[in-house]
């Protein structure tokens, strides 16, 4: 019975007040981050990006270019490389070889991303294959249909099975909060995912609106905090989708800092799933350094 999802849900109060969460998130988002702390935040945010391309038209050329940018986003030694490149399974080998010798990880979306609507056996196969291609991290999706039907045990078991299939690879569990809709559901799904073996929990695939929002991230961070208090295990967080500006990214950092503390402010425990965000961070970095905005033409589109 230890594997029962109900044990994990019983441990936690799962009530979330929507208005309260939104209020708290917006008060944290209004922190005033200026001068040196803005510069530091930008560098930190860059180091936490999962630079993502998840399109049908992705090709080796596109992915290789993205990897170059991931390793060295700009000609400035103060700017770190990003945390990982996130691609479809077919692109993992390409990414792996392009990132050879760097610190940048390869993350890949498996388990019939983005819908997750296929048999578990196929999903675990996909995961194993993707890991064998060299993926360091697997971003899986939960079965939202089963979750919304109340079939929590199914969701729990599926995550466990995928975690097993991952082997040494790191598992991020995508809740697709835009489809779960309520904060109560988000909290419940977060708890299930953490007990089932997630290393990270992640908001969205980026294919459903709304994707990551500050309030939804706050609810997940609070679940992570409760889980940590209960078990002593640190779970990572990854908001993904819709994070486009430096201001957004800094708001997320404030949320993490004041909800989980400084120890979570590392790429090991916090990631930002994004693609266009990187250039805005670089642009703001230059502005902060020189006092002037540069034209978008000076930043590469890879």
């Amino acid at each position: 019975m230890n594997n029962s999802v109900f044990n994990s849900l019983e441990t936690f109060n799962i009530n979330v007040d929507e208005i309260g969460v939104k209020e708290r998130a917006s008060s944290l988002a209004s922190r005033s981050i200026k001068k040196n702390s803005k510069l530091e935040a930008i560098k930190l945010a860059v180091s936490m990006i999962d630079l993502t391309t998840l399109e049908g038209k992705d090709s080796e050329g596109k992915v290789t270019a993205l990897c170059r940018k991931a390793i060295r986003p700009i000609e400035d030694n103060d700017i770190p490389g990003v945390a990982a490149v996130c691609v479809y399974p077919n692109m993992v080998k390409t990414a792996k070889s392009a990132l050879q010798g760097s610190n940048v990880k390869v993350a890949s979306v498996a388990t019939s991303f983005p819908s997750g609507q296929s048999p578990l056996k196929l999903k675990t196969e996909e995961v194993k294959k993707t890991v064998s291609y060299g993926a360091d991290e697997i971003d899986m999706v939960i079965s939202r249909g089963e979750f919304l039907e109340g079939n929590y045990q199914f969701v729990f078991d599926e995550i466990r099975a995928v975690k097993e299939a991952c082997g040494d690879a790191h598992l991020k569990v995508i809740l697709e909060t835009g489809e779960l809709e309520t904060f109560d559901n988000v909290r419940k799904a977060s708890i299930i995912a953490m007990f089932a073996g997630a290393d990270f929990i992640k908001t969205s695939t980026g294919k459903v609106q709304p994707a990551a929002t500050l309030p939804v991230t706050l609810v997940m961070l609070e679940a992570i905090r409760d889980y940590y208090n209960e078990t002593g295990i640190k779970i990572g967080m990854k908001p993904a989708g819709g994070i486009r500006t430096t201001k957004d990214a800094i708001s997320y950092l404030c949320l993490v800092k004041e909800t989980l503390g400084d120890k979570w402010l590392t790429p090991d425990l916090f990631r930002l799933g994004a693609s266009t965000l990187l250039n805005d961070l670089l642009m703001q970095y230059k502005k902060q350094k020189t006092g002037f905005y540069q034209s978008a033409d000076y930043f590469t589109n890879d």
Binding site: S47, N77, G101, L269
Partner: peptide, 29 residues
């Protein structure tokens, strides 16, 4: 937090730079 050792284990990077802060954290100015 078993992952962090794994992450840092991969070190012979050609573009090794002042990457991750030694102690996580960041202060508001």
């Amino acid at each position: 937090n078993g992952y962090s050792t794994k992450l840092n284990g991969n070190s012979a990077a050609s573009h090794q730079r002042s990457l991750k802060p030694k102690k996580p954290g960041w202060e508001y100015a």
